[in-house]
Amino acid sequence: MRLIIAGLSIVVALVLIFFTLLIIEGPVPVLVNNSGTAGFISLPTGFKAEIFADNVPGARSLATGDQGTIFVGTRDEGMVYALKDTNGDGYSDEQWTIAEGLFMPNGVAFRNGSLYVAEVDRILRYDDIEDRRDNPPEPVTVFSDLPLETSHGWKFIRFGPDGMLYIPVGMPCNICNTTESIYGTIARINPDWTGFEIYATGIRNTVGFDWDPETGDLWFTDNGRDWLGDDLPPDELNRAPEPGMDFGFPYYYGDNIENPEYAGEDNPAGSTPPVVELPAHVAPLGMRFYTGSMFPEEYNNTIFIAEHGSWNRETPIGYQIVTVRQGDENPEAVSFATGFLDSSGEVKGRPVDVEVLPDGSMLVSDDYAGKIYRISYDETG
């Protein structure tokens, strides 16, 4: 009996210590074991997909900190997570909640030790975040002059090679014309939060962009409108090497084809057609140029695009990762990672973003399954 009482006393003491530390130090990292394959994902020979993190509800945009922390935004969940592979085995073994209760915090970016999070109407900054994962600081609101409209209002953000933060603002509709010039754009702002300007216009809704590491040109995905049938209009991969370019929406889609709502009107001229027309409704989101050294040489500087997949097409389409060799004379999208939609039509996952890690492997977020996968290559495997 004494041994039982003593044992219970120890348990109670440990529980009290745990909660005392929680109050004093803030959130304790969740220890996880994500080791395992993602066998439903089909890849080219030599590649494999494994589960990097298995409990990340609504995982969407990805960003990597200087110390290797992976930051993950969400949308409807209102959460921002941090993940860490502490022993270098290719799997996240610690996980933190950095923020909760935010307004569609889809976009995350990292710069000079700080995490930037995009809500619908403002940009937040969490300073010294990699040294404060256990006790995240209160965020600083660094920019708040963004619309409150939630239709296409969640944002993907990234710092460009010019040091400016690029912020898209989607159209607040399926198709419409608005007198507010901020809608349907990619904007940018200096890191001291001065000089806000619109970089590109005529964009329905981009949720992913990156810069060619060789030329510095901005490339971005764009989601086409709905309700023109299963096969129109194309989704897009666009290139914007300089400010001031117009990509046609809402007047045009594809290669300057008039939308029916604006046919025959005196529409603006000179819009830029997409570099690659993707199939209608594949919903291209995050994209990255491959800058690692793990994958075969043929993938150097190749664009990887996460196709989230259709929601209103009679036969579902997308649900995969595709590649585009942007140096080709006639670049086209080629399937790379499939199986998120199986042959029976069952959805296994919906890819959202891709992120190239320092070791050359690639992460893929999946907001449907609440997971993050790691794709690696071994020519002997």
Rank of each mutant, 00 (worst) to 15 (best):
F143Q: 12
D127S: 11
P137D: 05
W154Y: 11
S151R: 15
T141G: 05
G153V: 01
P137I: 03
L146A: 10
P137L: 04
N135A: 00
G153E: 01
E149Q: 13
D128R: 12
V142L: 09
I129M: 11
D145F: 00
S151E: 10
T141R: 14
P137F: 03
D131L: 04
K155G: 01
F159N: 12
R158Y: 02
T141Q: 11
E138I: 02
K155M: 01
N135H: 08
N135E: 00
S144E: 08
P137S: 08
P147T: 05
S151T: 13
H152F: 01
I129Y: 12
R158D: 07
D134E: 07
L146I: 09
F143H: 14
R133L: 12
N135D: 02
T150Y: 01
P136R: 14
E138A: 07
P136V: 03
L148H: 15
W154G: 02
D131G: 07
F159H: 13
D131P: 01
V140N: 15
S144W: 03
P147Y: 06
P136W: 08
E149M: 07
S144H: 10
L148G: 14
L146S: 12
F159E: 10
D145G: 04
T141H: 08
V140Q: 15
P136A: 04
K155H: 04
F159D: 09
N135K: 13
D131S: 10
T141D: 02
V140C: 08
D145Q: 11
E138F: 04
N135L: 00
E130Y: 06
D134G: 13
P137N: 10
G160W: 07
V140G: 09
R133C: 04
F143E: 08
E138W: 03
P139H: 12
D128V: 00
I129L: 12
F143W: 14
H152L: 02
H152C: 02
E130Q: 13
P147N: 09
P139F: 07
F143D: 09
F156D: 12
F156H: 15
G153I: 01
T141M: 05
R132W: 00
D145Y: 03
G153R: 09
R158G: 03
L146G: 12
P139S: 10
T150K: 15
W154T: 10
I157G: 05
P139M: 08
